[in-house]
């Protein structure tokens, strides 16, 4: 009887512990299943396709066709490099404009902070395509922006804004800005404000305090922000379609046309996978570089 009363709770305690250990995995399950179905499987499919050869009429067959990848660095080298350069410029501009904005919202808006955050997110209430189309109208040749720039002589009489690389970069910057501002804002917001007082107490001028305290502590936000801006920008094709011209085409436009117009799936897949690999490589290099810098200063 004694044995029964002792072993009873012990057994149920052990099974309860087992159940508790299983809970994290159960919580992971839906997310993992989702990723498997909608990310890993299509990705695997894409990689397989990228190594096929053939045509729409004759059918595509798997053939270890590594040649497909060469196009990224030969035929479409221009579009590919343009993607990286445009994305890089747009990321840099977003950082230059977005950091002060995030800083101001985090430190200077006081009780109006929620209002500014809502204003920042407001563009998301209008679909991305509509916003970009609106820019098409604003930047149009007879639009107010162009005529004003022409009348004050910044733009020549035949100069235009729409259908230029500048418009593409501006569109990328505009659309991705909130993704830069929000992570930086979060990093600044959670920073202990007493650290700035401590820096001032230790003879740090406001400028020095920013570079030695605020900036390093906001780096995690800057890293997330630049990744959230650069990665979508590098693969974008809508901005070029709506605001650019064929001469400003990015690799995204090539991929789109290979998939939807030319129907050359292996080439499109190879360009996609190649772009992804290069971006992942750049990101890893960048994160390691900036991440370690943060640790040594």
């Amino acid at each position: 009887m004694t044995a029964a009363t002792v072993s009873g709770p012990a057994v149920s305690a052990a099974s309860a512990a087992r159940r508790r250990r299983r809970i994290p995995y159960l919580l992971l399950l839906p997310g993992m299943a989702w990723l498997l179905l909608f990310f890993f499987l299509p990705l695997a499919q894409l990689v397989v396709t990228s190594l096929e050869e053939g045509s729409l009429e004759a059918g595509f067959n798997f053939a270890w066709a590594w040649d497909n990848y060469g196009a990224l660095f030969t035929t479409y080298r221009g579009q590919f490099l343009r993607s990286l350069v445009f994305a890089g410029i747009a990321t840099l501009l977003s950082l230059l404009i977005g950091y002060p904005l995030a800083y101001a919202i985090a430190f200077r808006t006081g009780r109006y902070k929620p209002l500014f955050l809502v204003l920042l997110l407001m563009p998301f209430l209008v679909p991305f395509l509509l916003r970009t189309l609106a820019w098409r109208i604003i930047l149009a040749d007879e639009g107010l922006v162009v005529t004003t720039l022409q009348s004050i002589g910044i733009l020549g009489s035949s100069g235009r804004v729409l259908a230029t690389p500048m418009a593409v970069v501006a569109g990328l910057t505009y659309n991705l800005m909130p993704f830069m501002v929000l992570p930086i804002y979060v990093a600044l917001e959670k920073m202990d404000k007493a650290l700035l007082e401590a820096s001032a107490d230790l003879y740090g001028s406001p400028f020095v305090s920013f570079w030695k305290v605020t900036w390093p502590l906001s780096l995690p936000g800057v890293i997330s922000g630049t990744l959230l801006t650069f990665i979508p920008a590098a693969g974008d094709y809508v901005e070029v379609e709506l605001l650019g011209n064929p001469q400003s085409a990015m690799v995204g436009n090539v991929i789109e046309s290979k998939f939807l117009n030319v129907i050359d799936y292996p080439a499109a897949a190879a360009l996609s996978v190649g772009l992804m690999v290069v971006v992942v490589f750049l990101v890893v290099f960048y994160v390691r570089r900036v991440g370690t810098e943060e640790l040594v200063t």
Binding site: A194, E197, S199, D201, K212, E294, L295, T297
Partner: peptide
């Protein structure tokens, strides 16, 4: 504050989390 010959020990300590102890003290 950065022009006054006084230093403060803060209630929350306000140590710089991204710096080592040596660099905190050397700041």
């Amino acid at each position: 504050p950065y022009r006054r010959p006084v230093n403060t020990v803060f209630q929350s300590y306000a140590l710089f989390p991204h710096l080592t102890i040596h660099e905190n003290v050397a700041f």
